[in-house]
Amino acid sequence: MNDATSHPSAVGTPSCAPLLPAAAPRESTSRVIAEALREAIIDGTLAPGAPLRQDAIARHFSVSAIPVREALRLLETEGWAKVAVHKGATVAPLSADEAREIYEIRSALESLAIGLAIPRHTPATLRECAVLCEAAEREPDPSLYVARNAAFHMSLYAPAARPQLEDLIRVLHRRGERYLRLKFGLPSYKGESDNEHTELLDAVRRGDVPAAQSLVAGHLLGTGKLLHRFLTERAQAEAALANRPKPRGRPPRTTTGS
């Protein structure tokens, strides 16, 4: 018998096959934890700067510290968490520059996607787009609106049949979700966004590629600029408040005997 095929550590041999799936349970556990934390960050349950304590998370999920560390490492690589030596992990802060950049990249990718998709749309796919557009417009709940907004956008690009492009766009949708929720503090902009969706759908129905690309780019770049301005102004206001001198208390009154 050949030593290369009988040795249990030989790469690519049948004896190694049963060992490969062994890491799957822990990996899936860490991903489940990461997804739960991600959802809590998106919906605001975990606020920017909130601590992500490994021991508390491990107790909550009834797991050891290992999958929690892996989950936090994954969130850090995706930009959801910040990990500092000797300080632990915290929820990443909202960033005006990040918000703007996410929507700048989305505008480029989604302009490409919609141009590829329009020639391949059918009456059935256009009906689906219309249903999803109306569902997003009527949705008052921020959590559900974010999902319906993403579903509408992705329905416009689905006929392009570009899975890698769609995956990139979905990742950016996820990264932008907690920023998009800020629009609900600005109701007039929600209505403006819905009107832009309707105009975009009309251009897709007409098969007008240049108009659709211009509309989707303007829609996304406008959102990025709005969020950048809102977050910048909020940060400036918070800084001004923090630097405001504290009023001095009045000196205690003294009394004299009569």
Rank of each mutant, 00 (worst) to 15 (best):
A4N: 06
T232W: 01
E166Q: 11
V68T: 07
L168E: 15
V68D: 05
Q164V: 10
H197A: 04
R205P: 00
L201P: 04
T5Q: 05
R120W: 06
D97L: 11
P210D: 00
P142S: 02
D208Y: 00
E35P: 00
L132Q: 05
T232V: 02
P251K: 14
A92H: 10
C16A: 15
F152Y: 12
E166N: 14
E134Q: 15
Y157E: 11
I114W: 08
V209N: 01
A240K: 05
Q164H: 12
A160V: 06
R248S: 13
D208C: 01
S193R: 12
R69G: 05
E39L: 15
R234L: 08
G249A: 08
L165F: 12
A242G: 01
Y145H: 13
L168P: 03
S214I: 00
L74Y: 11
I57V: 11
F184R: 11
L75R: 02
D141S: 14
F230P: 01
V63Q: 12
I42R: 12
E192M: 10
Y179L: 07
E238M: 09
G222Q: 02
I105F: 11
P67W: 04
L46W: 09
D202F: 08
A40I: 00
R206P: 01
T45M: 01
H228K: 12
T254K: 14
R148N: 07
A50H: 09
T13V: 13
A160L: 08
H7K: 02
R127K: 15
A150M: 09
L20T: 11
A235H: 10
L132M: 12
R26G: 15
A24W: 13
Y179T: 13
G224P: 02
A211R: 02
P119D: 10
F61C: 03
R148I: 03
P252D: 14
R174I: 11
A17F: 07
D55I: 07
G222I: 01
P93G: 12
R31L: 13
P252H: 10
S111P: 05
L37C: 06
N2M: 15
S62V: 11
A108P: 01
T122Y: 03
P187G: 08
A40W: 04
P187H: 06
I42L: 08
E196N: 04
P210E: 00
A158Q: 14
V85D: 14
R205E: 11
Q213R: 12
L156I: 10
N195L: 13
A211M: 00
L109W: 13
F61P: 05
A84E: 15
M1Q: 05
L226N: 02
D141N: 15
E101Y: 09
G185K: 03
P140D: 09
